[in-house]
């Protein structure tokens, strides 16, 4: 944890200098006033400078990065971990060689790492801050693949005039399917089943074949 002591003509003055030195905002620090300071008589006699001690608070991003650094160190993989703050949390990107073990089959390990990192980084914090984790651009690539899958499936649903149920997916991936097709008036999407086997069904709304399924065999 970084800490600095600064002096100034007033407490505000000293604090401002300390913040500039640490390169952070006032919300990222804890301030301890060591000396109030006084102007002295007519600003000349007996004036004492104000002194503050400013400690940089360890934030969610720091803790998440420290945890992931420990993890990749024991896994013996050489990666670069980069974190950025976003409007609704923090985003951490891991880039490097041999990172497949961090992603796992269908990104299951990546989701688990994200979950664990959230727990570790927000341990004992009153207002948890959401940590989004990505490895080698996996989520971005997966998003494109899912959007394409959604559009292709919608096309087939319209052509065949019947519903299509996709493979089971985690919630975040199902969400991408729903969002991709939400503005398409000719199809509707619903999630069915229980986790972890919940799957999206794309329904043709033009002839409402979902509520009245066609008999499988003609009698």
């Amino acid at each position: 944890m970084k800490a600095v002591e600064e002096t100034g003509r007033s407490v505000e003055d000293a604090l401002e200098q300390a913040l500039a030195k640490l390169g952070v905002g006032v919300d990222d620090v804890e301030v301890e006033v060591l000396e109030e300071g006084s102007r002295g008589f007519m600003g000349i006699l007996g004036g004492r400078p104000a002194r503050v001690r400013v400690v940089k608070k360890e934030n969610t991003l720091d803790r998440a990065q420290a945890f992931l650094n420990d993890v990749v160190a024991v896994m013996g993989i050489d990666v670069k971990i980069e974190g950025t703050r976003t409007a609704d949390g923090v985003e951490i990107d891991i880039e490097g060689q041999n990172v497949g073990g961090l992603i796992g089959r269908r990104g299951q390990a990546l989701d688990a790492w994200q979950y664990l990192t959230n727990l570790v980084a927000n341990k004992g914090v009153k207002e948890p801050c959401r940590v989004m984790l990505d490895v080698a651009g996996y989520r971005a690539r997966r998003r494109v693949a899912l959007e394409n899958l959604a559009k292709r499936t919608a096309q087939r649903v319209k052509e065949r005039r019947r519903s299509i149920t996709l493979d089971p997916m985690p919630a975040a991936e199902r969400r991408i399917i729903h969002l991709t097709l939400q503005d398409d008036p000719e199809v509707e999407t619903v999630s069915e089943g229980r986790e972890p086997f919940r799957r999206v069904t794309v329904i043709n709304t033009k002839r409402d074949s979902a509520s009245q399924p066609r008999p499988r065999f003609r009698q």
């Binding site: 992603i103 796992g104 089959r105 390990a109 688990a112």
Partner: peptide, 8 residues
């Protein structure tokens, strides 16, 4: 999940 994946 993560331990198994790391040593898959």
């Amino acid at each position: 999940t993560v331990v198994r994946s790391a040593w898959a």
